[in-house]
C-alpha cells in the first residue's frame, strides 16, 4: 500500500443473502457491491456518485466496516495505524471507529430529540473514552462547535429548536469531535434547501482542508460533486464504471453512463431544452442483474460483445479509469 493512500479496496464485494432458493446449491444473493478496486488518497475529497440502487451507500458502509464484506480486502493506513478491515480484532475495530466517522443524510432523523446539542456532540467522546474529565469534554465540544460555526449558547438547546442547516452542522460537529482521519458523508446535503446547501458544502470543504481530513462524499447530485470533490467515482449496479480527477471527468466523460448522467442535469438555460441525451429505462434490479456489461440494457451503443462479456476497469497513467468496451471508439467522433 503506497504511503499517500488512506483507503485501498481490492476486489471488494458485499453480497446480501436472499430468502428462498433451493435447499441445496448456492443461496441466492443480492450483489450490492461487486469486485471494486478503489484507492482514496490521503487528504482527498473523494466523490461517489450513482443513481439509487447503484450501491454507493453500501460501499461507504463497507469502508467503515459497517456492512458485511463478502470478498476482498480493505486496507487502511493513516501513518499511525494500519489495518486490514476484514481482519480487525475487537480492539482494532474500536480504534478504527475513532478514526472513521459517518455523517448522515437526514438531519431531522439523525439527532436524538431528547438530548441537548452539547450532549449529542459529547457522546462520541464519552463512549470512546477519549477525554478524562467533564471539563476536557466541554472544551473539546466547544472547540469543534466553533469550527462548525455553531453558536456556543445553542449548546444547551435541544435539536427541535434548529433549522435543517443548523442541524446538519450539529451532525458534522458530532462526527468530527473524535478527530477522525476518514469521514463518509452520505448524501449530507440532499435534504437541504439550495440556499443552505451551499453553506454546508463550504463548511465541509473548509474543515476538510483545515483538519487535513479524507472525505468520501456520497451524492446523487453531480453538480454538487463537481464543485466540492477532487476525485470522482461513478457507480452503476454495484460496479465502478468510471473514476477520474473531477475536472477531467466532467470535461471528458468516457463511459456512456457518465455522459448520460451529466446531460440529464437540467440546465439553467431555458433555450437548452431538449438537447439532453436521454437515457431510456431504469436501473435493473440488483437481484436480477443483466449479463455482460451491467449497463447494456440502457446503453445506446450496445453490441453483442457488451451483452456477453463484462468490461473491467482499465487503468491509465492519468488516473482516469473506465470500464467500457467501446469508450475509445466512442471518444473519436
Amino acid at each position: 500500500m503506497s504511503e499517500d493512500v488512506l483507503i485501498e479496496a481490492r476486489d471488494l464485494s458485499v453480497h446480501y443473502p436472499l430468502r428462498g432458493g433451493s435447499m441445496f446449491g448456492p443461496k441466492p444473493v443480492v450483489k450490492a457491491v461487486e469486485s471494486i478496486n478503489l484507492d482514496i488518497g490521503k487528504g482527498n475529497f473523494f466523490g461517489l456518485v450513482g443513481e439509487s440502487g447503484s450501491g454507493k451507500t453500501t460501499l461507504g458502509k463497507a469502508l467503515l466496516q459497517a456492512a458485511p464484506i463478502t470478498r476482498g480486502t480493505v486496507g487502511y493506513n493513516d501513518g499511525e495505524v494500519k489495518f486490514d478491515l476484514t481482519q480487525l480484532t475487537p480492539a482494532d475495530l474500536k480504534e478504527y471507529r475513532k478514526r472513521a466517522q459517518l455523517i448522515f443524510q437526514d438531519p431531522y432523523a439523525a439527532l436524538s430529540p431528547r438530548m441537548t446539542v452539547r450532549d449529542i456532540i459529547a457522546e462520541p467522546l464519552e463512549v470512546m473514552g477519549l477525554t478524562s474529565s467533564r471539563d476536557e469534554t466541554d472544551a473539546r465540544v466547544r472547540e469543534i462547535a466553533e469550527k462548525c460555526r455553531l453558536n456556543l449558547e445553542h449548546l444547551r438547546r435541544f435539536p427541535h429548536a434548529f433549522s435543517g442547516g443548523q442541524r446538519q452542522r450539529i451532525s458534522i460537529a458530532r462526527a468530527l469531535v473524535s478527530r477522525p482521519q476518514f469521514v463518509v458523508a452520505d448524501e449530507s446535503v440532499a435534504a437541504l434547501d439550495v440556499s443552505i446547501q451551499a453553506d454546508v458544502l463550504n463548511l465541509l470543504k473548509e474543515i476538510q482542508q483545515e483538519m487535513g481530513l479524507t472525505f468520501l462524499f456520497i451524492s446523487h447530485d453531480l453538480s454538487v460533486v463537481a464543485h466540492i470533490c477532487d476525485h470522482v467515482a461513478v457507480m452503476y449496479l454495484g460496479r465502478l464504471v468510471e473514476t477520474a480527477p473531477t475536472r477531467e471527468l466532467f470535461a471528458n466523460p468516457r463511459h456512456p453512463y457518465t455522459k448520460a448522467l451529466l446531460s440529464a442535469i437540467p440546465s439553467l438555460d431555458p433555450d437548452d431544452r431538449g438537447k439532453a441525451q436521454k437515457l431510456e429505462g431504469e436501473i435493473p434490479s440488483p437481484t436480477n442483474q443483466p449479463t455482460g456489461c451491467k449497463f447494456h440494457t440502457r446503453c445506446p451503443y450496445v453490441t453483442d460483445h457488451c451483452r456477453q462479456e463484462e468490461p473491467i476497469l482499465q487503468h491509465s497513467s492519468t488516473g482516469h479509469e473506465v470500464a467500457c468496451h467501446r469508450w475509445e471508439e466512442l471518444m473519436t467522433p
Binding site: 440556499s195 446547501q197 453538480s223 464543485h227 466532467f250
Partner: peptide
C-alpha cells in the same frame, strides 16, 4: 447558490 457545471471555479454562495 446553485452549483453550475460550466464553471467549477466559481465559489458557491450561500444566502
Amino acid at each position: 447558490a446553485l452549483p453550475q457545471l460550466d464553471d467549477l471555479d466559481v465559489p458557491l454562495q450561500a444566502i
